[in-house]
């Protein structure tokens, strides 16, 4: 195998790394999942109620708010990374938290990154409940609160799709975790930053192994999405 093509060789080694549960691969994968899942959780905690508020309350400029959110879906990750970096750095207002270059900081950055997406998708999920359904809920004698709860329950699968999409964006992005986390080995290195680093160091087998895992996670999210959307 010494004289083989480095790509094919890397691929074979990558499979080995995964099958033998290489400690480095496992550690990076678990950290990646931990950071992005936690970020998705906090983002959902903040974005779902806010999205519901935007949907249920009529206010001036509602349309503008929703358009802005939709624009922020494509928020460049490096911009969020830069902003969160500045906020968390020693000279920034939240420097005292000592979050920079920690998984905590990365969670904050990814949370900020996907909040607009989750809010926007929550608004559209709730808007998917048509007028006749809302009339029916009212006609059945629902109070204001019961109406809100029924509409949210009815939109649950659409909201869940939004959350899954948010998680997909978080785990696949490299910009914020690189800037805010710093890609420190054994501390803040995640799948995407490890792939970037190892590829630049021509350490293809590890990159490919991590890439396969990242693809598998993305695939898993996609399968979950289609299951949810079929409901």
């Amino acid at each position: 195998m010494v004289n083989g093509n480095p790509i094919i060789e890397g691929f074979i080694e990558a499979i080995e790394l995964i099958i033998t549960l290489d400690p480095q691969v496992v550690e990076i994968t678990i950290r990646s999942l931990y950071v992005s899942l936690t970020a998705t959780f906090f983002a959902a905690l903040i974005a779902l109620p806010l999205g519901a508020l935007i949907y249920f309350y009529e206010f001036r400029g509602k349309h503008a708010v929703v358009s802005t959110l939709q624009t922020l879906y494509a928020l460049p990750t490096v911009i969020v990374g830069l902003i969160v970096f500045l906020l968390l750095s020693n000279v920034g207002p939240f420097g005292f938290l000592r979050f920079l270059y920690t998984p905590g900081g990365m969670i904050v950055a990814q949370t900020v990154l996907i909040i607009p997406l989750l809010m926007g998708l929550t608004v559209s999920a709730l808007s998917g409940i048509d007028r006749d359904k809302r009339y029916t809920i009212t006609a059945l004698g629902a109070s204001r609160l019961q109406t809100v709860m029924t509409i949210i329950a009815e939109a649950r699968f659409a909201v869940m799709s939004g959350v899954l999409l948010g998680f997909g964006r978080a785990i696949a992005e490299v910009g914020t975790v690189m800037i805010v986390g710093g890609n420190i080995r054994g501390a803040t290195r995640v799948l995407t930053t490890a792939i970037a680093l190892n590829t630049s160091m021509a350490n293809y087998s590890l990159s490919i192994a991590l890439g396969i895992i990242l693809l598998a996670v993305a695939l898993g999210v996609n399968i979950a999405l289609s299951l949810v959307q079929r409901r």
């Binding site: 006749d132 009339y135 006609a139 029924t150």
Partner: peptide, 26 residues
């Protein structure tokens, strides 16, 4: 009072839960 609409409207839950909605609200 109660109202039945032109388009059949059901919610994404079991038939039982659909029929129980109004009573649960009450």
């Amino acid at each position: 009072m109660g109202m039945l609409f032109q388009r059949p409207i059901v919610f994404n839950s079991s038939v039982y839960d659909n029929v129980a909605m109004g009573l649960r609200y009450r």
